[in-house]
Structure formats: C-alpha cells, structure tokens
Design a protein around this nucleic acid. Sequence first.
DNA 1: TTAATACCTGCGAAAACATGCAGATTTGCA
DNA 2: TGCAAATCTGCATGTTTTCGCAGGTATTAA
Lengths: 117, 117
Amino acid sequence: MPSRQVVAKELAEIFKIVANPDRIRLIEELRAGEKDVNTLAQILDLPSPRVSQHLSLMRAHRLVEERRDGRHHYYHLIQPEIAAWIVDGLDFIEGRMSGVPKSSIKAARRLWSASTS
Amino acid sequence: MPSRQVVAKELAEIFKIVANPDRIRLIEELRAGEKDVNTLAQILDLPSPRVSQHLSLMRAHRLVEERRDGRHHYYHLIQPEIAAWIVDGLDFIEGRMSGVPKSSIKAARRLWSASTS
DNA sequence: TTAATACCTGCGAAAACATGCAGATTTGCA
DNA sequence: TGCAAATCTGCATGTTTTCGCAGGTATTAA
C-alpha cells in the first residue's frame, strides 16, 4: 500500500478519536493540566463510566496518560498542543447550515484558548 | 444546552467528515485547485461512485463546491486552509502503537505541503 | 436517435460507534 | 473486618458509516 494511503489512514484514526463532542470537551478540560475522572464527569455532566470509557480509548491511542494516586486516577494530555489544534478547527465550522451563532463560537474559542498556567 | 456543548458538537461534525482516509486524500488532492470526479477517482484508485458520495457529503457540509462544465463536475475546497490544518494533525500520529515509519509521515507532509501555485 | 461518457442516487448488508447499566476491582477508613 | 468511594469492564441495544452495486440522469458526438 502506498505510503500516503497509510498516512491518510492513520490520520483518519486521530480524527475519529477526536470526532466526538464528549471527547472534545474532555481534551479541552485537560488542556490546563491533569484532572481526575470524577472531576471531569462533574464538570461535563456525564456519567463517570462514560468518561472512563472515553479516557480509556484515548489512552489506548496515546492521547492521554494516567497517574494514580490512592483511589483517584488523574489523566493528562501527552501532547497538550492537540487542544490548540482542535480549537483551530473552529475556523471551519462557521458558514455551515446548522445554526450555531458566531458569538458562541467566539466564546468557546476564548474559553478554550485561555491561559494554561 | 450550554454553548460550549453546542460548539463541541459542531466541531465533532467537522472531525467526523474528515475522519476518513479517502476523504483526507481527496482534500489533499484538492488543495492545489479544482479537479473533476474522474481525475480524482483515478489518482486515488477508487470507484467513481464512491468519490462522488464522498464529495456530496463534503458538499452538504460546505467543505467543497461544484462547478459544472459540460459533463465534467469540478470540485474545489471552499476553505483551502483546511488542507494545511489536516496536515498539522500529523504531529499527533507519531508515537502510536500502529507502526507507521517516520519517513512515511515526513514524505506525506512534504507532498501535502507542496506549493499550491 | 442511438451510443458513449461522466456522474449521481438509492439500497441492502456489514462493520463500527455510542449509550446505559449491572457488576467487578481497588483503595481508604472506621 | 467491612463498608463506601472512585473507577473500570463487559454486555446488550440502537444508531451511523461504509461499501459495493444496480440503475438513473445529463451531455456530447456519431
């Protein structure tokens, strides 16, 4: 198989992992540093088994890493720059049929680009 | 629904559209300008109905536009910058279990970043 | 008008995903 | 020891995507 095809396939994998609203929000929540499963579940208002499943998928694909401390499992992004890359994708969601007001997009961009320190 | 959630959902849509090896290659082939369906099918070695289906999905989501000339349908990217954004994603495919040699990644990056003029 | 080219649409089967929930595991603490 | 908190795993179900193919529409040319 030609190498461009292999690379395209691999790239598609990354896009597939990110192609889920929960996982996008997880990544943006983790952009500033590690958080544990419960915290994430509360912030995003999701059942914790779901958060756990998303994180384990992302871990299998080496997007996040786990650190255990007592009964808490803290997760962090292996390459935090991925959060910024995702935000860059906002450039391509304006001007699509589905009505998301520009103000929401701007708000999200601002929030998700906030200082990480 | 909180606006961040809406934005995340919309972003996920874009990722879903791109999350397919054929469509990634289509976008990269179109980065330099319009091409017709048959040309794309030949270059990518895909049955033309498949190319057509991919393009119609991308058109529905306003990633590409069509220009007809006789019996040829030429497609072009509405926002050509999306091709570069996708290439940026290559930063995140190294260091994953599936063995894609770095040289292939570099080759793809070079090819897909070639001058568009 | 017939034929050929270029492309599109619809459909059914298979594969991949998402979701909710029940039950297991590990750890901390009384 | 025994219970509760934090998380994980497995499974059944429903939904989306993908794929191949058959048949349809427009356009050009003989």
